[in-house]
Design a binder for these strands. Structure first.
Lengths: 188, 188, 188, 188
DNA sequence: ATTTAAGCGAGACGGTACGTCTCGTCTTGAA
DNA sequence: TTCAAGACGAGACGTACCGTCTCGCTTAAAT
């Protein structure tokens, strides 16, 4: 079952992704354009449109290629320890300025462009919720889980806090917050 | 010291605000344009540019004119009761579909357009934080406040939860969440 | 009955026409583009699209502005003399290389673009036929007209010869042809 | 000295020619594209580019394949009779709407694309001139030729008339024109 | 039989121009 | 001075084709 025709150029794909990453750093998300990415990467606009639906999708893939977006699912033996490790890893990601700058823009685009919103939600946001869900589920079977906030609420509080810091207050996320969150959510 | 010349037309101002509100409902924020607002409202583009810096600012004023964005600072006698009342009022706002649709767009624009971001933060987001701050301060003087989450963290958790629901999961905010939050944040 | 709003910029109009005339000489009709005209003239593309339906229409107006496309209707006293004067003037036009180069392109465009074809026919070709028609009609009232070729056929032969030389053989039109045509068409 | 390798596919050639002929009827010459011909004919673009330099060349060959472009060189015994027969055959060709539609486009392309212009002139236009030249030459040796219009002028007048009708007035060529032309050109 | 060299359908590629849209500014004449 | 109207320079949009370049295959002559 092989498709005929010339193969997709991996070289162009890389050129486009790194041009997008470079440009968003130079001109910002509002100043980023498909035309600009094509010019900087030495490719044609059609090549971009053929493989990505919007500049946000290019950027999301560029982010995945550049930053390590791997979601850790630690097993430290206890729910508080697991939660602490998960939070530390998540907060660390949010401390790379180029990364959060792009995440900000993608979350914004997700509000404005419904189709990208759907992709961003299922391909990025929900994966992180699920990772946290694994920790909570493990704690539940271990009998380690406090009854109080429902599992879904735990995720809402954790990710809500992170995103609110990123989007609204724009303050860096300090480590003292981890302690507060862990004692709030994991302490019976 | 009255300057000569024609006065600002209140009629045009109203026409622009309601045209903006109508259009954003019809074509969405991405499809909204200054040109479209001018055409719909029967005004000139210059009249809009003279009084508002961007379409987001028009929309923010239109929202303030339409929805009651008043922030209640209840005094119910105890911190848990105050918090519950504040949360109930805040969540109620988030249940009006047209309102959250616009708030979503404004929060998005705030990420992309730094100048509007500054205005949105100081003129909208921080006012709500301050209102919550009043409740917390009152509880502190009353000796009603649990020591655990710092006041700033309380605000981050409350508003983080609301905005995360609005922006990321897009799920309506159910009342059971209020109980969870109150018992989590106000219960010693 | 005056229209509101800014007036059309005569400066831009002139810049566009002369940019078009210059460019067609440099890159040929096939290489001419609206985008190129806009860039060369220092105007926006929309300004061109606002006033002309196609690059051919710009060129037609540029030609009219540059070359003297005035059609002489001589009165030399006799049909042969009138005809000779008309032919001399028409042939003279066809000897300016830049002019015939553009006319060639416009006649070509008229075949390919039906809407421009209609404009070119009524605004250019038929006016010349009518001018010749005046001579013939005058000869008829004077009793000077040979019965043989119908008036319409005279025009077809005269303009057919000119255009065929321009489009097909691309040979310059020599003066000896005038004598042949006059003796053929005016000699009883 | 036969080269190895696969032979040119006659099937593809036919498919391309008839796709071109069909498409030009459906979308017009301006809407015709190599890409469209390839898609309609079920061939690859490269196959077209391998054998024809431009869409006009495809169309010229398609026309030759479909319409009988044979040029008659009648021998009716006298110059007037020969001329009449030649004109009748030539005018007949111009009465097939699909044929003249394509000829119009090819003549247009010949103005815009110099390389095709050269091919069209030597491969199409001049052949017709030469056929008429044979008649004139025969008349000259027979002593049948009026001295008045030079042989070249005769061709210019005949073909000029036909092409002018096709390109400029777009009126059908009626039979009365044949009588006028014959009496004009062949009558001493 | 194997090698070599086209030709083939398919389709990705770097480009270029299209015609449209909206931006934010400027100009006009009336209010 | 503001207003409605609307032209202006600018520039990105997403699309359509251009002509070229793989790609795996088929076909056929030469080895």
């Amino acid at each position: 079952m092989i498709r005929p025709g010339r193969k997709r150029s991996e070289e162009s794909r890389q050129a486009i992704l790194s041009a997008a990453a470079d440009l968003v750093g130079e001109v910002g998300y509002a100043g980023l354009s498909i035309e600009g990415i094509a010019a900087r990467s030495g490719t044609g606009k059609q090549t971009i449109y053929r493989w990505w639906p919007s500049k946000a999708d290019v950027l999301l893939e560029a982010l995945a290629a550049k930053a390590d977006l791997h979601i850790p699912i630690p097993d430290e033996g206890s729910y508080p320890a697991d939660l602490r490790a998960f939070l530390a890893a998540s907060f660390a990601l949010g401390r790379k300025p180029q990364v959060i700058e792009v995440l900000r823009a993608l979350m914004a685009e997700a509000q404005i462009n419904p189709a990208f919103g759907e992709r961003f939600r299922t391909g990025f946001l929900e994966r992180r919720r699920e990772a946290l869900g694994v920790l909570v589920e493990r704690a539940r079977t271990r009998g380690d889980l406090p009854p109080d906030p429902r599992p879904g609420t735990v995720a809402d509080l954790v990710f809500g806090l992170i995103w609110y810091r990123v989007l609204a207050t724009r303050e860096p996320i300090d480590d003292a917050l981890i302690d507060e969150l862990v004692s709030l959510l994991a302490a019976g």
